[in-house]
């Protein structure tokens, strides 16, 4: 009975985080982006500096008509937003935010495998949407998503593999237990590759070619309206939470910190995640969209070699340490 309660409580907390954090990041994006452009952003919703803007947006989306195009593959079309969103919820279960088993939804031994595999499923949502919409823009967006997925999944996996090699385990909790501060400079290249490839997989600017609104309207999401469209947007922000949390856990030491790691480890994790999320927003504001060929070039000629070099470095250092 107690076990059931424990599981229910953990799932409830994970679900609450899943609902709240993406909105927090979305609101931060509204405000940060506005101030970076010399504006003030939403000011009215909720009374104080527009804090409830995304709640208002959600209400608006819920009121809108849910249109399915006549030529669309109806069931796939309607299923796609769920496929895009739910994997991130599953990943969130496996990310530890503090030391010990109490601070993670579910300890999974093959943590990195699980997390990266399930994150890859999220992109399938875009592919399904792009194909099922029966719209040329959606199809183009879906194909670009596929190309991007192929190009960036590899460096991301290689960078994650480097950390797994360093820790000697694929469990996220195990990696954090093995973490030492000097891993930071040791794995810095891998961290950059992982973060950049993750951004590209989330289709965040400057890697938002699949939804390039000035050329293909909104890519795979062109035909979506109302709540289903909102779910795609929510998936993007949930993806940011996951990517930043994972980068913090894999490369920045998660709950490790200069001080207070015993009791306040989860604060360190959240802080690192928040800083990374800010960087995601910052990059969006600062850089223009990359062209499709530039995207491919960056992945194959820069990120993959860098990730391979990182793995080689990790291997060499590991052997030197152990001998």
């Amino acid at each position: 009975m107690n076990d059931a309660l424990d599981v229910a409580l953990r799932l409830l907390v994970v679900f609450a985080v899943f609902l709240v954090f993406p909105l927090l990041i979305g609101q931060t994006e509204h405000k940060v982006m506005a101030h970076m452009q010399g504006r003030v952003g939403p000011m009215y919703a909720g009374g104080f500096h527009g804090w409830a803007q995304l709640v208002a947006d959600g209400v608006k989306f819920a009121q809108k008509e849910d249109v399915v195009p006549a030529g669309a593959d109806r069931r796939i079309f309607q299923l796609a937003p769920a496929v895009a969103l739910l994997p991130y919820l599953l990943v969130l279960v496996a990310i530890p935010i503090g030391p010990g088993e109490g601070a993670v939804g579910q300890v999974i031994d093959a943590g990195i495998f699980f997390v990266l595999a399930v994150m890859g499923v999220g992109v399938l949502g875009s592919l399904m949407a792009g194909w099922a919409s029966a719209n040329k823009f959606s199809l183009l967006g879906g194909l670009r998503t596929a190309a991007q997925l192929l190009a960036y999944e590899l460096p991301m996996l290689l960078a994650a593999a480097s950390v797994a090699m360093a820790a000697g385990t694929v469990s996220l909790v195990g990696i954090l237990d093995a973490f030492e501060w000097w891993w930071l400079p040791w794995q810095i290249v891998g961290a950059l590759v992982f973060f950049v490839a993750g951004l590209a997989e989330l289709q965040r600017p400057p890697f938002d070619m699949p939804v390039a609104d000035s050329e293909i309207i909104f890519g795979a999401y062109t035909e979506y309206t109302g709540l289903r469209f909102a779910l795609f947007l929510l998936a993007e922000y949930a993806g940011i939470v996951i990517l930043c949390g994972l980068t913090a856990v894999l490369f920045l030491g998660g709950w490790h910190g200069p001080f207070g790691a015993d009791g306040l480890g989860w604060v360190w994790t959240l802080l690192k995640t928040a800083v990374l999320a800010f960087i995601v927003i910052w990059l969006r504001v600062s850089y223009p969209r990359m062209r499709e060929d530039q995207l491919q070039k960056l992945a194959w000629t820069t990120l993959v070699p860098l990730a391979l070099a990182q793995i080689a470095l990790t291997g060499v250092v590991k052997v030197v340490i152990q001998s």
């Binding site: 940060v32 101030h35 970076m36 452009q37 010399g38 910052w282 990059l283 504001v285 600062s286």
Partner: peptide, 8 residues
């Protein structure tokens, strides 16, 4: 990056 940060 510096430009956007300064503007913020």
């Amino acid at each position: 990056l510096a430009v956007t940060l300064r503007t913020m």
